[in-house]
Write a protein that binds this DNA or RNA. Structure first.
Lengths: 192, 192
DNA sequence: TCTATTTCTTGTCCTATGATAAGAAATATT
DNA sequence: AATATTTCTTATCATAGGACAAGAAATAGA
């Protein structure tokens, strides 16, 4: 079953076969159509989503109504707003499907139960969270130390599918620039 | 004892009196002189530090030798490189004392022992980590959506002591601008 | 106390990116 | 297929902030 491979990936092979089979049953298959929301600002995340197929993005709306893409998520990744899920507080961002998606979802209650009873489950969960923290910090340093063009090139190298699937606008706000500006950058890159 | 208050703060009052007294004994008092390093890039963080008094900063050096301040830490906060501490991998940043500091430190082994045996300890730890993640995300969105001047004003509001204690240069790299530019921003603010 | 070093300010000039707008291309809707 | 909507490109003009440099002020070291 696909979920089994997916889960051993996500949990970094930290779970035993027995543990894996145990938690496997608690995941619920969910699909989302393009543009559908998995989580809306203001809602408390009741479940998280493990992505089997598809592309999603998270974004926040600032007081002036500007939409900032905070992340892209695809195959083998978790679509989750960590603060909302773990602290059970209203989310400050949205998660939306960019393409049709197949996901497996787990409820907070089940997560919590396993987190407190299975050592390897909580190690794996902690590793995931600290991994997200790490990526965010690297992105945040790159925002300061590298040019928009270099950030774009790096993003594409790490995530080539974005070119075809995500809109220029979404990629631009992820990079912290305007769509106009990203269009110029693309032109300049093509020139070479 | 000061440590007791400090700990109940840091652990968000999630620990019972008994648990608190239990872990209290495992903290070791450490002091750092101004400019001393608590952690250097490349080292694996063996301990984390709870700050009783003083100010610290973390910073990363990029390939061109530019120093970027990634955070300031003071009273009641944790001075920790989460990825290095939790994953026990070499740190990609440094933590250095800006003023003389009094800290209480806990080893990774002890942390790990309590994390796996005391439910409230691991909840509190998880909350701390997700709290750091949350702040980082907010900072990272602000880097995109607000001007350097506004980021500066916000930082000062949240952390007024920085003006007297941290250098212009360190504050500037934290805000993602040059010291020259921050100096101009200060001038403009004073004008009003 | 004197000197050296570091930190901060200010000036000039420059560049990456923003704001706005208009048209082209692509996609969605009927 | 025709039309409406969204996405992308391009142009013009404006500006925040960078690079560099020189001097002033503050701090640390001798």
């Amino acid at each position: 079953m696909a979920l089994e491979t997916l889960l051993s990936n996500v949990f970094n092979n930290k779970l035993s076969k027995k543990e894996l089979n145990h938690i496997l049953l608690e995941f619920k298959k969910v699909t989302f159509r393009k543009n559908e929301f998995l989580l809306k600002e203001g809602q408390t995340a009741k479940r998280y989503f493990l992505i089997e197929e598809g592309l999603l993005r998270s974004f926040a709306i600032d007081p002036n109504g500007n939409d900032t893409t905070t992340g892209f998520y695809s195959k083998n990744q978790l679509a989750i707003d960590w603060p909302s899920f773990l602290l059970q507080i209203p989310a400050q961002e949205n998660i939306q499907a960019i393409t049709d998606c197949d996901c497996w979802s787990l409820s907070f209650e089940t997560f919590q139960k396993h987190f407190h009873s299975i050592e390897s489950f909580r190690e794996a969960g902690r590793d995931r969270l600290v991994g997200s923290y790490f990526s965010l910090k690297k992105k945040s340093i790159a925002m300061i130390t590298t040019s928009a063009k270099d950030r774009y090139l790096l993003l594409l190298k790490e995530n080539p599918e974005l070119i075809q699937k995500a809109s220029l606008k979404h990629i631009a706000t992820y990079l912290g620039i305007t769509d106009t500006s990203l269009s110029r950058i693309r032109k300049e890159i093509d020139k070479v």
